[in-house]
Amino acid sequence: MTASTSASRVILAIDTSGSAGSAALARDGRVTAARFEIRTRGHAERLLPMISEVLEEAETGYSDITGLAVSVGPGSFTGVRVGLATARAFALGLDCPLLCLDSFSLLAEQAHEAGYNRTAENSPLAVLIDSRRQDFFLRSYAPSGEPLGPPLSCTPEELAGQLPTAHPWLAGDAAARAATLPGLEMTAGRVLESVCHCDARTLARWASNPRAQEQSLPAAPLYLRAPDVSYPNKVAAK
C-alpha cells in the first residue's frame, strides 16, 4: 500500500486477557516497540494510550499496519472482551486481517522462546491460567509444542489427574498457585517464573510467521466457562 513499507509486514499485537496488559509492534518479524504492564484492572483505560506509545516509539502510523493479532483467552471475561473488541474494531477500521491465538498457546510459545525444552529431560508443559474462581484453566503441550488434548477447566482436586505427567513444567499466572496444592509438591521447582503473563511481543512474532495464518482461531473469545446464571424457579421446574 504505502510505498516506503511495501515490502514490510507490520503487525500490531495486543493482549489484555489476563493479569497483565501489553501491546507490541513487529516489522518483518522483529519487535520494534512494546509496552507491558502488570494489571488485572484498567485495561480499557490503558490499552489505547499504550498502543499510541508503541506506534510513536516505532515511528509507525496506524495506516502502516498490515496485520493485527490478539489473544482470545481464556482469562478474565472482561479483559478478553476488551482486547477482542479493540482488535476487531481495528480490523474493521483498517480493513486488514486479524490473527487470533488462545492464551494457552501464547504462553506455550513464550515458554519455547524462553528455551524451556532445551533441558535434558524434555518434559511436557502444563499451561495454567487463573480462572478468577477456584478452578484452573489448563492445557498441556508436548516438548515439540504440539498440544496434548483440548483446553479444559478443572477443580484443584482434579488438577493432578489432568496433568500430562507427574513432573511437567508449569507456566501461566496460576502455575505458582497450582504448585502449592497437595499432591503437586513435586512440581514446586518446575514453575517457569518468567512465563507467567501473556506478552504481546511473542504474539507479534507468532503473527509475523506465515504458519500463523493456518493456526489462527476465529476472532471470538475462548471463555471456557458458561455465564453464571440460574433459571427462574418457574422455568427450571418446566
Partner: peptide, 20 residues
Amino acid sequence: LIGGVLVGVMTAKALAAVND
C-alpha cells in the same frame, strides 16, 4: 451494565484512533 458498555467503548476508541 459495564461488560457491555466496555465492548462499545473499546470499539469506538479503536475506530476513532485508526481514523484520527
